[in-house]
Amino acid sequence: MLTYCLRRLAFSVPVLIFISFAIFLLMDMAPNDPTANLPMSIPAETRAQLREALGMGDPLVTRYLLWCKQFFIHEPLNWLTDLTGLSFGDPDRLRVLSWASRAPVVELIAERLPQTLWVVGSSYVIGILIALPVGIYSAYRQHGWFDHLGSFISMIGYSVPSFFLGVVMIVIFAVKLNWFPSVYDTTLTVTGWESFLAQLRQMVMPVTILALYNAAQISRYMRASMLENLHHDCVRTARAKGASERRVVLAHVARNSMLPVVTVIALGIPQVLAGAIITEQIFKINGIGALLISSIQSGDLPVVQTLTFLFAVLIVLFNLLADIAYGLLDPRISYD
């Protein structure tokens, strides 16, 4: 088991390095100019000076290695310094700086992460909480009315693009009924009952949409997995032994069916985070998705590079976690 994990980890490192280089190369080869958004009254020489000051004149490999050094060595050291209060090495070491705001990229991401995590996290939890019972009951009463309704709703949730549903919700609930705010307030801190309600109100629409999508996907897996297990011999044995129906379904079938679903849940996390790019755009939430889009538009390479790479890290990490979880939960699997 340990050797398997180590082997997988060892494979992840070259994959991630390759991806980070590929992203860098892709962005470097493309026509892109961070000075393009400046007002026209700024002369060409000033623009050239600025590009020089941003380090755009250096060769590709130099810039890539600089980014690697800043991201893999300086950032963790800074983090350690902040965490422990001790100082490691040169305190003035350069961090990965955004071209647009000249602020450390990691801090920008840290500022944006809470709202993304709040919305995505709660919608994922709600999605799972809905999906599991629906999936279990649908499979148990296969071809019943609940199953058909559930399948239909999950098919809808799976097929309706979030950008369409979001737009429709805004028209109805924000514009016509004026129930929910149209701008997400990131400065809101929950201090009491009233601010908590305000926070709830601004989260309702994005969370509903993401939760519907997540629930649709997970309940389909849960149902399929349940159906496979319901016809197993062990179920027949349990019934023959006189176990109650409730116990059979929940303790035997559902538990075994959770295995593949847990993997699916783990594997889904990075995708849900990436999918939040669209939801944030619709509901004007200033999260990491909005950061990515605005950075792409302003040609802010360090931010785009770092964010894209972090998404890749998340995917690799959760893949690994899913594999390990599978191994831990399913005694039949051995990793040798």
Partner: peptide, 10 residues
Amino acid sequence: PAVFFGGDQS
């Protein structure tokens, strides 16, 4: 805009 107003010689 990034291309149109950009100073990319190529």
